[in-house]
Every structure is written in structure tokens, then in C-alpha cells.
Amino acid sequence: MTLPLPLATSMTSDVPLGWFLTLGLFMFVVGGVGVVVRRNPVVVFMCIELMLNAVNLTFLAFARYQIVPGASTEQAALNAMNGQMMVIFVMAVAAAEVAVGLGIIMAIFRLRNEADLDDMSALRG
């Protein structure tokens, strides 16, 4: 009754875990550098999203490739679920964060009408 599912096949069995982690690390580092280098608040915010997604990718990679030695099948299944749950919560938190963060950015723009993060130092004292 079920078609061979194009998306649910065991595709990753021959892609090493390290490749996923490398991609995640690369995205995280690029995002982190972007946060430091860029001064446009919206772009900085986008770089933070990039970092969050890099972490998500890493979580999922570890969920899929069980690296705990000697774990039972149930334990492994639970671990895989834990990794996915983290990703779901990261997504939820990111959505809330974006809603509030963009609101803050818009409020700042209304107040100051400028685009440079480095000049937003009103509370520096």
C-alpha cells in the first residue's frame, strides 16, 4: 500500500557524521564572524539566525548518528528523539526572538533613525 518514500529512505548511511558537523561548524563560524563584523542591526540578527541553524543541524546530525557506545535500541531511539525535540524548541524560541527582536529594532529606528549598531550606545554612560 505504501510507495517507496522518496524522502524517508535511508539516505545517509554512507555520508559520514563528520561532514554534517563540518557544515554546521562552518555556518556557525561564518555567522559568528558576521555578528562581529556587520553593523546593520538586521544583518546582525540574520547572522544570529544562521548560528542557531548551524546548531540545529548539529543536533539533528547527532540525533541521527548515535555515537553513544553500547546504548540499547530503546536508548538510541530516545536519544534520537531528544535531538529532534531540541531543534523544535530552538525553532519556537527563534520565532519568539525574531518577533521581539525585530520589534525592538523598529522601535530603535523610530527613535533614532539610524542604522549603525556601533552608535547605539545611549546607555554606555
Partner: peptide
């Protein structure tokens, strides 16, 4: 972890 590949997890975990 570079050499780790394959997994004991079934495909329906996602």
C-alpha cells in the same frame, strides 16, 4: 567523530 557513519536508528524516527 569523522569516521562515524551509519546508524542504528530506523527511518521512521523523523
Amino acid at each position: 567523530l569523522m569516521s562515524v557513519s551509519g546508524s542504528p536508528i530506523g527511518d521512521e524516527y523523523g
